Computed example of a mutant assay.
Amino acid sequence: TPLECVAGVVSPVRGVTTRTKTGGAADATWRELTTILIVDDVIPSVRSALRSRFSRSKNNARNRAAIRSQVIVELEKKLAAEIIDGYDEVRVSASPEDPTVCLVEFGFAVAHGLNQVHLTVHIEI
């Protein structure tokens, strides 16, 4: 993590991880520390909200619709807090292999932090 000292105050410029590859291929997706922190915030938050509201529920169409709505509520909270930039359609279904399992699928876009501002200045004299 690069640090910068301005007016005697040291602060981080950018938090990065050491991950540079996925499956042996070069991949910068997980390089930004904020990406990992956001993923580690969003998924447990959704999981916790579902656990607190739907434990001991039946795996039926009505509850699956309610689960979908709750996931959207949680994602909208993250969107409003600018933790994510957007999310894909939320799909909820019963597992075809196990009737006691409810499958929830969604994607989201991580909101990227602003690490630097590069200026290009054109001066006329």
Results as ranks from 00 to 15, higher is better:
53 R>W: 11
55 S>N: 14
42 V>P: 00
51 R>I: 10
60 N>M: 06
56 R>C: 08
63 N>Y: 06
47 R>E: 13
65 A>D: 09
45 S>W: 01
44 P>H: 06
46 V>H: 02
41 D>V: 06
49 A>M: 11
58 K>S: 10
57 S>A: 14
76 E>N: 15
50 L>E: 04
64 R>S: 01
68 R>F: 00
47 R>A: 15
76 E>W: 03
57 S>C: 12
70 Q>Y: 08
67 I>Y: 00
48 S>W: 11
71 V>L: 05
60 N>W: 07
71 V>W: 04
63 N>F: 06
67 I>V: 12
38 I>R: 11
46 V>T: 07
46 V>W: 03
52 S>G: 06
69 S>A: 15
48 S>C: 09
71 V>E: 05
50 L>A: 02
73 V>W: 07
72 I>L: 07
48 S>P: 01
58 K>M: 09
41 D>C: 08
38 I>F: 03
64 R>L: 04
71 V>P: 04
48 S>T: 14
67 I>G: 00
49 A>L: 11
69 S>M: 10
41 D>T: 15
68 R>M: 06
46 V>C: 03
59 N>K: 02
62 R>W: 05
72 I>H: 02
40 D>T: 07
54 F>Q: 09
74 E>N: 02
39 V>F: 04
56 R>S: 12
40 D>E: 11
68 R>L: 06
57 S>L: 08
38 I>P: 01
69 S>W: 08
64 R>V: 02
48 S>R: 15
73 V>I: 13
53 R>L: 15
52 S>A: 14
77 K>C: 01
73 V>T: 15
65 A>S: 11
68 R>C: 03
47 R>F: 11
48 S>H: 13
75 L>H: 01
55 S>P: 01
49 A>P: 07
49 A>Q: 13
44 P>S: 07
55 S>D: 13
55 S>F: 15
64 R>M: 15
70 Q>M: 12
52 S>D: 14
75 L>E: 02
69 S>K: 14
54 F>C: 10
49 A>F: 08
59 N>G: 01
57 S>N: 10
48 S>E: 12
49 A>K: 13
51 R>W: 13
49 A>H: 09
47 R>H: 14
68 R>S: 08
59 N>F: 01
41 D>N: 09
74 E>M: 02
74 E>Q: 12
77 K>G: 03
55 S>Y: 15
70 Q>N: 09
45 S>A: 09
62 R>N: 08
50 L>K: 05
55 S>G: 07
66 A>M: 15
50 L>H: 03
56 R>T: 12
69 S>R: 14
52 S>Y: 12
59 N>I: 01
69 S>L: 13
63 N>T: 07
43 I>Y: 00
59 N>Q: 04
56 R>F: 14
39 V>Y: 05
63 N>P: 00
77 K>R: 12
64 R>I: 02
70 Q>I: 08
40 D>N: 14
63 N>I: 02
44 P>N: 06
57 S>D: 10
54 F>W: 11
73 V>H: 07
68 R>E: 09
77 K>F: 04
